[in-house]
């Protein structure tokens, strides 16, 4: 009995320890958002004087001023939002679907060349992105395909990093007996994948969806080089133009722009995060 009591005390102490650590990290996670939102309600010169502040002395007045800057700066968040939305959503859906499909083809079937494909995928992942990036934008300019959103969307079908993740995930959680029983039920291979394998991959798809959406949404350099027509700008490009003036950066507006940029991401994330939060209950059967 005494022993159990001690154990109980220990676990209470441990729980407090867990909470303290978690709360510290939670504060660290929230701090930059807080600073960013506060800075969106501060003036440029206030920010130059003290980049970090816990509150703004005249939040509403400054917010209005920062909005006014947008008008003078040819700032069209709605254009950027729509383009970013088209790109990120398409990229995420294409990358998720085709990466899962490719991973499944490697994991579930025995075919000649699959080892080569697998090696190729690992190989491409390891190539530093910088110079392939140079090659890519030069190619797009050469074939006069700038200002086309497709050029940023379609390449997502071949996302080696995600194929690799999906493959690793399937390795741990796909049981071929499920696939086999589907076949016995007369389901076509394609249907088996869509209706049985994909749902099984929900946790993996949810996490990768978040990562892909976030990185596609925040992607700046490539869209900046390839989309030079204002009607094709993405949200980060629109925000980057706010700091474009060399002599005078409107920091308050930049932070306001960044806050606007990040809000849709937070909403997408919170929605998808249910799969991360829900815990162990989701797992399928495992052979």
């Amino acid at each position: 009995m005494a022993n159990e009591n001690k154990l109980h005390k220990e676990s209470v102490g441990f729980k407090i320890f867990e909470y303290v650590i978690c709360v510290i990290f939670a504060i660290l996670s929230l701090a930059p958002f807080y600073i960013m939102f506060v800075n969106a309600t501060r003036g440029t010169y206030e920010i130059q004087q003290h980049a970090i502040s816990l509150f703004s002395p005249h939040p509403f007045q400054n917010l209005a001023k920062n909005w006014a800057v947008f008008n003078g700066k040819d700032f069209h968040p709605e254009t950027g939002f729509v383009n970013s939305f088209i790109i990120s959503t398409s990229v995420t859906i294409l990358a998720l679907y085709f990466s899962s499909l490719t991973a499944y083809s490697i994991q579930a079937y025995e075919w000649k060349g699959k080892k080569i494909l697998n090696g190729l995928i690992m190989g491409i992942m390891m190539i530093p992105g910088t110079v392939t990036m140079i090659g890519f934008y030069q190619m797009v300019y050469k074939i006069h395909m700038t200002n086309r959103l497709e050029m940023l969307i379609i390449p997502a079908i071949a996302s080696p990093m995600m194929v690799y993740f999906m493959k690793q995930y399937l390795e741990g959680s796909l049981s071929l007996s499920i696939v086999e029983s589907a076949r016995i039920d007369g389901a076509s291979e394609f249907r088996t994948f869509n209706q049985i394998v994909l749902p099984l991959m929900k946790p993996a798809i949810a996490t990768q969806a978040i990562f892909t959406y976030v990185s596609s949404w925040n992607n700046l350099f490539m869209p900046l080089i390839l989309l030079t027509d204002k009607s094709k700008y993405t949200l980060p490009i629109v925000v980057s133009l706010l700091k474009g003036d060399i002599y005078k950066t409107e920091y308050g507006s930049v932070y306001l722009g960044l806050s606007i940029t990040v809000l849709p991401l937070i909403v997408v994330y919170i929605f998808l995060s249910k799969y991360i939060v829900e815990g162990v209950a989701l797992g399928g059967t495992k052979g």
Binding site: A26, S29, L30, P32, F211, V214, L258, V262, Y269, I276
Partner: peptide, 8 residues
Amino acid sequence: FYLPNIIT
């Protein structure tokens, strides 16, 4: 805990 990854 994942939030810091969202900001550019």
